[in-house]
């Protein structure tokens, strides 16, 4: 057992001046008044600003973790390969994925269902860190939109794909990094019914 050290909290020393009450209060109110006057009549020296939200918006910092989105491949399909890394990493367990076979034999696996329950989400960004394909990002710079029933808070694959990141919004070409870029080479055509490819059909780079 560790030793228990008892510490007694000590109040700040209060002298006769502080006990007189009024001088200290006057000082405090004085500071407040100074700010009020400066910001009301200060002209160029105004430093607080009120915006007329929602017509006028303040842009969030670049690293702000906003609503999630799924990033697209060139053909518009999600880059996601349904590896479940995000849902495994998610501490709030808000990501629901159902995987299916992809039409493209070089991709193999893709999400049939990809849902994020934004009500459960704690916006920690672990899903983004876990993703090996750069398929999920929180770079929309937007809040999750308000909703009136719980079902609306579950964003599906289409909702998540339809959102744009800051780069796209600024009209720039986004750069994605993912594991499958390394797999860009074509696999040999798989032969149906389990027959084996004849040796001659092996690609040239098989050596």
């Amino acid at each position: 057992m560790g030793k228990i050290i008892k510490v007694r909290a000590q109040d700040a020393e209060v002298g006769a001046y502080e006990k007189a009450y009024l001088p200290e209060i006057t000082k405090g109110i004085g500071i407040t008044l100074r700010h009020v006057v400066k910001n009301l009549f200060g002209g160029d020296e105004k430093y607080t600003r009120t915006v007329s939200y929602p017509e006028e918006k303040v842009e969030y910092p670049v690293r702000f973790r906003g609503a999630h989105r799924l990033t697209p491949r060139e053909d518009g399909a999600p880059r996601c390969v349904a590896c479940f890394m995000c849902s495994t990493a998610c501490p709030a367990r808000c990501i629901n994925i159902v995987a299916e076979e992809s039409d493209d034999p070089n991709i193999e696996k893709r999400p049939k269902v990809f849902e994020i329950d934004e009500l459960k989400c704690i916006f920690c960004g672990m899903c983004v860190e876990a993703c090996p394909e750069d398929a999920i990002r929180m770079d929309t710079g937007e809040h999750v939109k308000p909703f009136t029933n719980r079902a609306d808070a579950v964003y599906g694959k289409v909702d998540l794909l339809s959102m744009l990141g800051r780069t796209e919004k600024n009209g720039e070409q986004p750069v994605y990094r993912g594991a499958h870029e390394h797999r860009a080479r074509q696999a040999p055509q798989h032969s149906p019914e389990g027959t084996l490819p004849v040796q001659d059909e092996q690609p040239e780079d098989a050596h």
Binding site: Q186, H190, G194, A206
Partner: peptide, 9 residues
């Protein structure tokens, strides 16, 4: 080496 990825045996 590239080899068949989905061979149904």
């Amino acid at each position: 080496t590239a080899k068949p990825r989905l061979e149904v045996l």
